[in-house]
């Protein structure tokens, strides 16, 4: 094996980084507008929600499972929290995010119960819980969208916080959303968890082989509950953050988003068979996906092609990782 191939194999992040650089350079050459700060900032901003949700999916995929319930959980947490904020008249950021995170956590633990105690396939479990939660929200809680005029002002204010702003060549002012920092903090925490705690290594071990993980002394139940609970909590948090960033709470939002997020995670080098993947890879994968899908406009391609592109990315990235992992499984 050549040195480069080996480096890619040991550090799949390098591959994603290469894809990202190639994509960015290509798009930049086709249309230099790409390099304008406003475009770059908006891409970074757009990758926040996909990226945070990607971290939730990464946890589940590392253990050898898959999660498709997180958009439903995110929306449920967001909608319930915003409704509660309006109904009970509390308008402060920390309790709101604590509530959304808690709702996500509870829903995630439900997934864990099914996966661990009933030994059900994660795909089926999360398809079921996701659909049920969405149905519950629309059927019982409400179907009406909460618009900017009703949204809690503190939430909107939080969502539009900027880290800094620059003046563009044309004279207009453009800023980088502070939500990027929120994303970075969450990513750092997950990275530390996965890399430097036994709980995190247990997730990798579980993905490497459940029986072996049990024999070596990992607590499989604890690990499973941690994975799905944390994934749910992250989803709940991301849901409210999403609402804050778009100043609306729409119970029908995020439909079909699971595919984009899974595409980002797989693009980031995570294996659909479990056991491999990293936070850095997921961040890069998320960025790449967002750059590709959001740049169709400046490339002069009709946005209806976006879904086609996402679908193809899922297939291509999964094929690439499956091809990479094939030898190991055989």
């Amino acid at each position: 094996m050549s040195g480069i191939a080996q480096a890619f194999r040991r550090h799949p992040e390098l591959m994603v980084a290469a894809v990202l650089v190639l994509t960015v350079v290509t798009i930049g050459l086709v249309n230099p507008v790409f390099w304008q700060p406003s475009n770059l900032f908006s891409l970074l901003r757009a990758s926040v929600i996909t990226g945070i949700l990607g971290l939730a999916v990464l946890l589940v995929m590392l253990s050898g499972g898959i999660d498709v319930s997180f958009p439903a959980f995110a929306i449920a947490a967001m909608y319930l929290t915003v409704k509660a904020m309006i109904a009970w008249g509390f308008d402060s950021i920390l309790p709101a995010f604590a509530m959304a995170t808690g709702i996500g956590l509870l829903l995630g633990l439900v997934n864990a119960v099914f996966v661990h105690y009933l030994r059900m396939i994660p795909l089926i479990v999360t398809l079921g819980t996701g659909t049920a939660v969405r149905g519950f929200i629309l059927g019982v809680v409400g179907t009406s969208q909460i618009n900017i005029d009703q949204m809690p002002p503190k939430l909107i204010e939080f969502g539009r916080t900027q880290l800094f702003s620059v003046t563009q060549a044309a004279g207009s002012e453009t800023g980088l959303s502070a939500m990027v920092l929120v994303y970075a903090v969450i990513a750092l925490l997950i990275h530390l968890l996965l890399r430097y705690t036994m709980l995190g290594r247990g997730i990798y071990a579980l993905g490497g082989g459940e029986e072996a993980a049990r024999r070596v002394g990992f607590n499989i139940r604890q690990t499973t509950f941690l994975i799905y609970g944390l994934a749910g909590a992250i989803a709940g948090f991301a849901g409210l953050l999403h609402g804050a960033m778009i100043w609306t709470a729409n119970p029908r939002d995020m439909v079909g988003l699971e595919l984009d997020v899974i595409a980002a995670v797989v693009l980031g080098g995570a294996s659909i068979f479990g056991g491999r993947g990293s936070v850095i890879g997921t961040i890069l994968g998320g960025l790449t996906l967002v750059v590709i899908t959001n740049s169709l406009i400046i490339l002069g391609i009709d946005t209806t092609w976006q879904r086609v592109v996402v679908g193809l990315i899922v297939i291509a990235a999964t094929a690439a990782t499956a091809w990479r992992d094939r030898k190991r499984i055989a």
Binding site: A205, G208, G209, A212, R215, V216, S271, G275, R276
Partner: peptide, 9 residues
């Protein structure tokens, strides 16, 4: 026989 190792680690 299967060694119970983690191939991914």
């Amino acid at each position: 026989q299967d060694f119970s190792l983690f191939g991914n680690l």
